[in-house]
Design a protein around this nucleic acid. Structure first.
Lengths: 160, 160
DNA sequence: TTACATTAGTTACTGCTCTAACTATTAAAA
DNA sequence: TTTTAATAGTTAGAGCAGTAACTAATGTAA
């Protein structure tokens, strides 16, 4: 087995851990990671459009529609067709949505951060530089990072 | 910005790059990343079971079944129910599957493999162990029970 | 004004992923 | 031996993610 194969397996483990975290979040708070992310967008910008969300969180419009369908059917957000431009749909949190969002836990990989922060400075640097190196070798450093995998980090990201 | 934030950003970039590669792979070779990964497992260990694959590539049994359904319906692999232990199903590549697998590129960007392979042995080990460490830190409360049961059986799949 | 292009959003379809519940079989315990 | 537990695999049901094709509305150009 080549080392790069093993690397792929490790990556799969990481991906899986993040996914499982999202599912766990759904159990405890009633919102998955992506749902939480989109609701945070709506909360931040009342009346935001779906396409704007798609841009902000780097998802396809179809995916945003998909997730909006789900949270709208649970009365967490409302869609309002704009009268100015009838193509547009403005989004608003319902009271129920606001309440749920308030109570939702931080979807961060708290466990990871805890462990990582406990490492010595040089160890942190080593892991970081390793990851950055892998990203660079995949030319991934040219891509936008998908924010969906880790909601917390995004909410802390600089606003434009 | 904390080091863990930077690390998570790099990680997301890597994951996204892999996802995009998988979709590209499907277009060009007719196999997605996960499909290719599983076929490689079967190729590597003739007669391997689904559960062993699930362990090796860190996917749930249900996911493996799902992907196997897809590639079996395309006559790329065959399922053979074991006579020794009728719970088990052994997996084999068909000629068509072997042929497709031969022609398929690696599940990670060749670009990456090229660069990675060019590294010194100790550098490869460093990157791999770093990734494994991140995976372990995210794995959190994963029980990962009964590693002792598997140790002896790792090298070869049971014949039927 | 008519024709074409663009934009916003949705729908249809496909694939990956999980958990939970289920069948069948085998192993272990009482 | 009978009962109980564990194992292997599948199925059902859900969510996320994408592309492509579509409707509807708006903008632009001939």
């Amino acid at each position: 087995m080549q080392k790069y194969d093993e690397l792929l397996v490790s990556l799969r483990k990481v991906i899986r851990a993040i996914d499982l975290h999202s599912k766990q979040l759904n159990k405890t708070s009633g919102l998955t990671g992506p749902q939480l992310l989109i609701m945070q967008e709506v909360s931040q910008t009342d009346g935001i459009t779906a396409s704007r969300i798609a841009q902000n969180v780097n998802l396809s419009p179809a995916t945003v529609t998909n997730i909006l369908d789900r949270i709208e059917s649970r009365n967490l957000v409302t869609r309002v067709r704009s009268q100015m431009d009838k193509r547009r749909v403005s989004l608003y949190l319902t009271d129920k949505g606001k309440e749920l969002l308030d109570k939702a836990p931080q979807p961060l990989q708290e466990h990871f951060i805890e462990k990582f922060s406990a490492l010595a400075e040089w160890e942190q640097s080593l892991l970081l530089s390793s990851m950055q190196r892998v990203a660079a070798m995949m030319d991934a450093d040219k891509l936008d990072a998908s924010p969906l995998l880790e909601v917390g980090a995004l909410t802390q990201a600089p606003k434009e």
